[in-house]
Nucleic acid binder design. Sequence first.
DNA 1: ACCTGAACACCGTTCAAGT
DNA 2: ACCTGAACACCGTTCAAGT
Lengths: 200, 200
Amino acid sequence: MVTKWGDRETRRRDIVAAGQRLLIESGYASLQMRDVAKGAGISPGTVYTYFPTKEALYATLYAERLEEFVEKIEPLCTDTHNPEDLFVAVATEYLEMYRVYGRELTIWAVLGGEVEMDDQAGAQLILAAARAYDTILHTVERLRLDEADDPAMVVTVLWSTITGLADHFTSVRQHLHPQNWDETVRFAARKLITGTGTPG
Amino acid sequence: MVTKWGDRETRRRDIVAAGQRLLIESGYASLQMRDVAKGAGISPGTVYTYFPTKEALYATLYAERLEEFVEKIEPLCTDTHNPEDLFVAVATEYLEMYRVYGRELTIWAVLGGEVEMDDQAGAQLILAAARAYDTILHTVERLRLDEADDPAMVVTVLWSTITGLADHFTSVRQHLHPQNWDETVRFAARKLITGTGTPG
DNA sequence: ACCTGAACACCGTTCAAGT
DNA sequence: ACCTGAACACCGTTCAAGT
């Protein structure tokens, strides 16, 4: 199926699809504009009439993946009653996303305006990030593990820990430390949520 | 002072110094081999007789900074008795390092061999990272907050949390959430170390 | 031996020319 | 209007030639 001349809607999807395939198959280093163009069946110049920069394209890809992430965790947040189990489940979903999209562009960087993103790509990413944030925040508020805590701070710490763990495990991967994702994440959850108390 | 022709020791220091200055002043994007060469008072080709790749140069810079980090936290680890205070102090030192060296090359990536680093630069970084790891590990073992915990796992979780928080705060910087580093880190420390217990 | 700097390779991006 | 693809800019890296 060849996209028709002038069908900008479909063309745009072609570009996004080509980009996603490259990212998933071989990572950010392989997301090259010439290859994206080739994958979408167009010339390099054309890509730039849809996305002003490579960064904007990447932001769009990331935003779509974030939306998928939110859709995956929303039912978990509603249904899972054990906070530890929920933490592990959300962290594991996050890990899957982080494997492909994690190391290159932080949501915070976009939110903070450090990355130039004048256009709609940035807006879409910010919206998706806000939705993810709200989902977590509402869940934290609903669970109310410790009413004295500021929920926003709880979210920051939970999110940072999950990011840090995902970063650690995607880098160290199959090597080195004999540690196990599930076990480590559950351990972190136990510490953060239930607490342990110092002995004697 | 112009480095003498053939003085490889001093020349190498010139290159490292030029690299550090570029990194600190304007970040990784400004660490360009032509500028490193100019800063060291040599031609681009010469840099490559000292460091086989830009990555190897960066690994050396990072290793030196890590050594400085270890020197800074070692006395803290020995002298600070309150685990919460220690966590905050170490995290804050880490944040300073992460501002400059954090986002580009994880120690774990080098340790895991994902980054090509055949030569001495990789070895130096691995050594520095191992020293940092051991310092933390020994401290965790000494404090023995919960004897049932596996110290290696404790270190992984502590380290991941610190990395995640540093990542969050260096990205979000002066924008957005009105949160405060000290307050947030101390909150994380309280959760991770002392624990809170669920109410009711 | 050590160093120079022009040249090569690669990749994001632009733009005059095509349909 | 939309699209092409050669060309430009930039930067990591190499190597024949200089001292």
